[in-house]
Design a protein around this nucleic acid. Sequence first.
DNA 1: TTATCTGTATCAACATAAGTTACAAAGGTG
DNA 2: CACCTTTGTAACTTATGTTGATACAGATAA
Lengths: 137, 137
Amino acid sequence: MAANSQFSMAVHMLTLIARAGTDNVKSDYIAGSVNTNPVVIRRVLSQLNQAGLVASQTGALGGTRLARDPAEISLCEIYKAVSCGEVFALHAKSPNQDCPVGRNIEAVLCDLQKEIDHSVGEKLGQYTLADVLEKVG
Amino acid sequence: MAANSQFSMAVHMLTLIARAGTDNVKSDYIAGSVNTNPVVIRRVLSQLNQAGLVASQTGALGGTRLARDPAEISLCEIYKAVSCGEVFALHAKSPNQDCPVGRNIEAVLCDLQKEIDHSVGEKLGQYTLADVLEKVG
DNA sequence: TTATCTGTATCAACATAAGTTACAAAGGTG
DNA sequence: CACCTTTGTAACTTATGTTGATACAGATAA
């Protein structure tokens, strides 16, 4: 499949929204900067909305604004909001349970997966949207 | 697409191969434990071969054996051998360069991507195939 | 009332993984 | 040498997921 770039899009979008302060930002405007279709933007915004990172408003003069201070939004929260997110996938089909390795490997990999995902979350948690804003300028 | 489970397969496969010691393990046998097609196994083995983790032999009595001691094979090496591997993807299409955010966001995300990938590698590097062997029993 | 936006549903286009079949080449064995 | 087994790949199919695009209902300001 095409690689999932929703996290990159989300950070980009939130940066734009943050820079607008309390003004509502329209999905059309965001789409112009991200260089994609407004519906793609609104799909990601829907997830950010559910995560409580932004607030949207319909109707004329509608749009989206941040629900929280940029310094209070960690990249980990953004990642979790948009990602189905495991660094690596477990077996698609269950291994052969008659094999001692096949019987036990899944649990070992599952534990490892949790540990790696947790470590990614911690690393992303070291940065906030405010840090990104500063770097982007 | 279907999620990429090659790393999980690779760890599973290498565990089976390690347990066989110096004996050659056939792709048919591995496929039976992983519960998939032998060609899928040989495709992953081909990558592990290129990474120097295993050695294969064609012909009758052929098969695959470890090229190194299990304690000298880190999970990071396995991950790098099979994964095209970024935790998150950058923008598919380049953002709008006329927008100050679009112009700078890619570099920021690229740096972040490298940092996260590096941290995943470090975490995986804390474990070896020998550790997996011990856990699987 | 009208124009503007969001929120979704739906469909097409494209990419990738996994599964399968087929076969050339390598390498033991009788 | 002839035969059998096994790897290494190519090619094709199927399944799944992401992105892009069109369409339209519902909300809301002027």
